[in-house]
Write a protein that binds this DNA or RNA. Structure first.
Lengths: 227, 227
DNA sequence: AGTCCATCTATTGTCGACAATATAACCTCT
DNA sequence: AGAGGTTATATTGTCGACAATAGATGGACT
């Protein structure tokens, strides 16, 4: 099982305090998981009654959803969930490749030896799950792996951009296009190579392997999107 | 003078419609230019009376300011303008180097020949301004140059991240630490080399030159921050 | 019949008031 | 006098109502 020292991934670290926090997280989950369809309109009144809160907190939640590029809003018209398109996927993964490549490089430089150790422990625990091909757990494990490397960069700006910004959009593409498949085991091997490079403090290699890993991942999803 | 086909840079392309739009842009400018001090608290009531709008639109504006990382907010406590620190500057410029390097690479691949032409025209018009060492115009010109390369990437995700996200924070550091100095002419030469690489469709070189250009820029600001 | 214009309706934008929370001031007890 | 707890106050969070705008509906004119 996962470490107790780390939060449950994907649901954000910052726990919800206010009513707007909870509504934001609920809405975000519903959008990422596809319970609210991509491209659909978000009616403030409708959501207000649905979640039992005032329109003010709905607007607040929508504002934050705009900040992570999950919804778009036009003045006096309303908010819509973003559409999932091949072009959007490619653009997103180009950015992700650049940022996560950088994260891997910085992680190789800045991770504490404890963090490196924990990363290896995590991968070991994944090994058994992969053998049983528990595909959902693999999805969670994948997010966890990337999450730790991002945190290991020790760059607050980068961490915010990735974990609060584009990562939920990445998950939205992944979840809604289905993630199981033969890539599970190869992806795991790639993770191990990246972790090895980081353990060796080989920043250049870590960046390169991460970029390649994400490229493969994009090609995998792209394949599904076009079929 | 600048092209008529392009917007006035730095004030966002999307013109303000609603009252919240205007308040957001006003507040953002005041923060970037330092009229509202870095690290200071943003009282909703105070801003409400100051700008003559209700607290609701102030809150809306603050929400958007949080989206571009210019202010931070804690639940039930309030919002503060971000602090300018050496560590924050370095983290920001690391990200910027990665993203704008990518923008330069994509621009070399995706810019239309018209855009390439306009970029050269822009630089020509800057040449005279540099001779007279009009430092403010140089600041504006610099932003304009980078802005066009970002747009030339033709990657909507990247464009949003840079122009609506980190760029205002970059300007905040630059403006509040003063930008004039001997670097003006050398920066101009670097711009020319980047433009040349893009004109040659040499993506690799364009990325490398842009990264180096931004590194120099960071070192220049860092020098002022530490003195 | 088609096009243009006016009205009507539904949705978003804005406002002021109330509720809940955190910080500050104060008071009590050791 | 200092530490701990308690009330007071100022600020943020939430709400429902009103104003303004965009899109839909319907009508008049060519």
């Amino acid at each position: 099982m996962s470490q107790a020292t780390h939060q449950p991934l994907s649901t954000n670290v910052i726990q919800a305090i206010t009513s707007a926090d909870k509504t934001f997280i609920t809405l975000r989950t519903d959008i990422v998981e596809g319970r609210i369809l991509a491209g659909s309109k978000l009616s403030e009144a409708e959501l207000s009654t649905k979640y039992g809160v005032s329109r003010a907190v709905i607007r607040e939640a929508i504002s934050r959803l705009m900040a992570c590029h999950l919804v778009e809003r036009k003045a006096n018209v309303g908010a819509r969930v973003v559409a999932l398109t091949p072009a959007g996927l490619i653009e997103l993964y180009q950015v992700r490749e650049s940022l996560e490549g950088m994260a891997a490089r910085l992680a190789a430089q800045n991770m504490t030896s404890e963090q490196v150790q924990e990363l290896q422990t995590l991968l070991d625990s994944h090994a058994s799950a992969v053998k049983d091909s528990q595909s959902y757990y693999q999805e969670a494990g994948d997010v966890d792996f990337h999450y730790r490397i991002i945190m290991g960069s020790h760059n607050a700006q980068l961490i915010t951009l990735l974990t609060e910004g584009i990562y939920h959009l990445v998950r939205m593409y992944r979840v809604q296009l289905g993630m199981a498949g033969p890539r599970v085991t190869t992806a795991f091997a790639e993770h191990q190579h990246i972790a090895q490079a980081i353990a060796n403090r080989d920043a250049e290699l870590a960046e390169m392997l991460m970029r390649r890993h994400i490229t493969y991942s994009r090609q995998n999803i792209e394949h599904k999107l076009l079929s």
